[in-house]
């Protein structure tokens, strides 16, 4: 409550804590989540599956979109093949049937993979909100290490539970190497 004044003077994105090890980060993230914070994020140079549990991250939409892409690609490929062979350009080749299902399987299969693969990659990037040219976390000077060797946790001001002084205190209680304010 008292921090609101600080916000006005100094537009703040959040408070960031830096940790030395993966274990500390996971523990910190779990505590933060348990403390009721929701608008916060952990930054780590390697994917940590433990964080998914600790932060309650269970977004399965990438799989869902990929499945939809696979179904659309497969049915599209099969339809394309049979439409071309039977309707658009029916060619009689040695009396073989126009609709020859075994012969359509390769194209169907490739279309399934193509569309599913593209959906998987594109939906991952889109759901992650990328490409994003600017993000406040990079304002923290040491944040560059997040892609190499250090672990970070940032609680954002948007969180309803955010309170400047209290949040700083809370983060300091997690035994970080450093706590920093993140300019917006």
């Amino acid at each position: 409550m008292s921090s609101h004044s600080t916000l006005d003077v100094h537009p703040l994105y959040g408070i960031m804590a830096e940790f030395a090890t993966a274990g500390e980060l996971v523990a910190a993230a779990r505590k933060t989540h348990e403390a009721g914070f929701r608008k916060f994020d952990a930054y780590t140079p390697v994917p940590l599956h433990e964080l998914d549990d600790a932060m309650d991250l269970h977004d399965n939409r990438v799989s869902l979109f990929t499945l939809i892409g696979a179904i659309l690609g497969g049915s599209g490929g099969f339809t394309l093949a049979s439409w071309i062979s039977a309707k658009a350009l029916p060619l009689n080749i040695g009396g073989r049937p126009l609709i020859s299902i075994p012969m359509f399987i390769p194209v169907t299969f490739e279309c399934t993979i193509l569309i599913a693969g593209l959906t998987a990659a594109i939906s991952m990037i889109m759901l992650n909100g990328l490409p994003l040219p600017y993000h406040p976390v990079f304002n923290v000077e040491r944040f560059g290490a997040a892609s190499k060797s250090k672990f970070f946790l940032c609680i954002e001001t948007d969180d309803p539970k955010f309170d400047h002084a209290a949040t700083v205190k809370f983060l300091e209680s997690l035994n970080p190497e450093e706590v920093a304010e993140v300019a917006r």
């Binding site: 040695g94 073989r96 020859s100 075994p102 012969m103 399987i105």
Partner: peptide, 12 residues
């Protein structure tokens, strides 16, 4: 199985 079917099917 599919490979065998397709090759024999198309060869006829």
């Amino acid at each position: 199985n599919f490979s065998q079917l397709l090759i024999i099917w198309s060869g006829n």
